[in-house]
Each structure stands twice: as C-alpha cells, then as structure tokens.
Amino acid sequence: MGLKKNAAAVTKEPKAAAPKPGKERTNSLLYSQKLAPYLFVAPFVLVFAIFYIYPVISSIIMSFQEVIPGQTHFIGLTNYKRLFNGDLGQAVLNSVIYTLLSCAVVVPVPMLLAVFLNSKKMVGKNIFRSVFFLPALVSIVVAGLTFRLIFGEMPTALLNNVLSNFGIKPIKWLGGPAQWTTFFALLVLCCWRWTGVNIMYYLAGLQNISVELYESAEIDGANAWQQFRSITVPLLKPTFTYVLTISIYGGLAMFLESYMLFNGNRSPGGAGLTIVGYLYRLGWEQANFGFGCAVGICLLVATLTINLVQLKISGFFKKE
C-alpha cells in the first residue's frame, strides 16, 4: 500500500516540470494538497501513538505480569483473578453511589435554575450568573481545604456551629460512623463546584430556543408549566444529555474531591475510596503495577462500553 503511494508520487513529480530537485522538493511539499493534511494531523498522530496507544498496550502486557524492577515476569491471569476483592468492590460501589447521587442533583437542579434565571421576570441575572460561576475558578486544593475546614468535627467548625443553633449535636462528617455523612460532604462539594457551570450549559441551550415558540404558546393559552414541559424540556434535551454525560464521567472519575477532603487517600474504613483512588493506591502507595494495570484495563473496557452504549442510544452513529 505504502509502496504504491510512493510510486504514484514519483511518477507525478516529473510532471511538476521543475528539474532542480532540492528546492522544488520542499516547495512541492509545502504546496502539495495531497500531503498537507497528513502533515497537519501528524502532531496528533504522534501524541496519540506515544501517550495513548503505547501506554494502553504496555498496560495490557503489564496486566499479565508481576512488575518488580529487574525481575518482572509473566504470571498469566493471576492479576485478573484478584480483581474480585473487597477493596475494589468498595471503591466501585462508592464511585457508583457518588455518581448516582451527584447526577440526581447536579443535572436537573441547574436546569430549573437556568430556566428561572432566563425568565423575563428575573432581575440581576448577570450578578447571579457570575456568583454561581465563581466556584468553578477555584482549584480543587483550595476548595477541598475550605470544605474540610467547614466539615470539621469540632463543635466550633462552621457547619456544626450552625447546626448547634438548631440543637443538633456536633457530627463527625468526614469518615464518621455513618456513611451518609461522608457522601453528604462529597455531594455538597460537588454541587458547590458544578452547579454554576451546568447552569451556563443550560443557559446556552436556552438561548437557542426561539422566543416565538413561547409567544405562540402563550397566545394559545399555555401556562408557564405547560410551556416548560412541552417546549423547554424537549428542546433542551441535547444539553441535558451533554450535562448528564459529563456528570457521569466526572462522577466515575472522581478522586481529588475525596483526596482533598480526607487529606490524602486514606479515609477511615475506605469511606471515601473511589475507583481512581484505588488505582492511585495500587500504583503509588503499594507499587503494585501489574495489578493496577489489570484494574485499569477493566475500567477502560467498562468506560468504552458505557460510552458506546450511550452514543448508540443518543443516535450518534445514525448521524455520521
């Protein structure tokens, strides 16, 4: 295949009617419409090959090995047989619960808020928009530190202090005896960071809906709720799907929120252990690369499957 192409290129060159080979060569390179796209795309191909294909392949190989510096050897499927252990199960469970909870809040609520914010009756839109967006500018280190202090277990820490006004005793929020407190803290942090961003996505989506639709609906006597249900919701569906997709992605890949809230990857009883946290533990705390890669490969397959299914459902393949 490659040879054939070369041959074609060689036979074409004399036709370019220039005998001087050196300069003409670079010129024809610069002006060739056949070659140009490959040169433009080349950086991507390089990056993709070096930083994606190679790691994935080496990851597949390592997943069948016990990786010890100097004496790495193949151990067959042993790593994969070890997958079904309590810690990984806990990590997957935590990640899935977190994803479900966060999607239940951070996908529909911003949609409602965006609709309210977009309504003609609202005042001070720009100020609220800016305020809601502020948390997205803050690095997870600063956000995590702040929320760790807010959720402190001392009675004087912000949240416990506020709750004490209502007669509620201080709660050990992070890694306390009840699991829900940990999830609650993670969820609050998630809402704080992403509500504003998701509102912006929905607001952008709302701008694409023609005002005339609402006007004619109003003439037909549709009330606000009916307009919302039969115009806004169906026309916001693409935005909704997008926000849902990134929320699932973000939820399943969540690690730093827990890492920062628990001051490292060591929450008591694994309350804040997530899938990525588990990978991090295997790689950097236990230097267990072979097993880490086996977990990584399974996650890769799972992610791709979820994505393909989702694209299939959303009709992506039909369009192309």
């Binding site: 990978l279 295997l282 890769l300």
Partner: peptide, 20 residues
C-alpha cells in the same frame, strides 16, 4: 481516535503513562 481520547479519563491510563 480524537473522540476516543475525549471519552477516556486520563486517570485510567496514568499508571503506564507514569512509567512511560
């Protein structure tokens, strides 16, 4: 392939990427 990268959290391949 571009879409493929967009879908994969970088965290999943961070172990081999680290070794690379």
């Amino acid at each position: 392939c571009v879409l493929f990268i967009m879908m994969i959290p970088m965290e999943i391949i961070m172990l081999p990427l680290y070794q690379l």
